[in-house]
Amino acid sequence: MRGEELIAVVTIDDTYIKGDIPIFFAKTEEEQARVAQTLAKIMQAMVHDLGNGVYVIVKH
C-alpha cells in the first residue's frame, strides 16, 4: 500500500491544532466545508472529519 499524506488542516477552533502543517481557519462551519472541499479538489485529495470540528485533507 502507498503511504497517505496529510496535506492541510481546516479548522474553526485553533485550540485543537498546532504544528508544522498548513492550517486554514474558517469562521463558520459552512465556510470550513467550502474551504476544505476547494482544497481537496485542488490537491485531488480527500476530506476527513476528525469529529472535533477539525477537517484534515489527506492524499491517499
Binding site: A33, A36, A40, M46, V47, H48, G51, Y55, V56
Partner: peptide, 20 residues
C-alpha cells in the same frame, strides 16, 4: 455513524464533507 461511512456493521471510511 458521524462522519464514518458504514455498510451494515462494517466501517468503510471517514467522509468529512457533508455534501459528499
Amino acid at each position: 455513524k458521524g462522519p464514518l461511512l458504514m455498510v451494515e456493521q462494517i466501517d468503510i471510511m471517514n467522509v468529512g464533507l457533508p455534501v459528499m
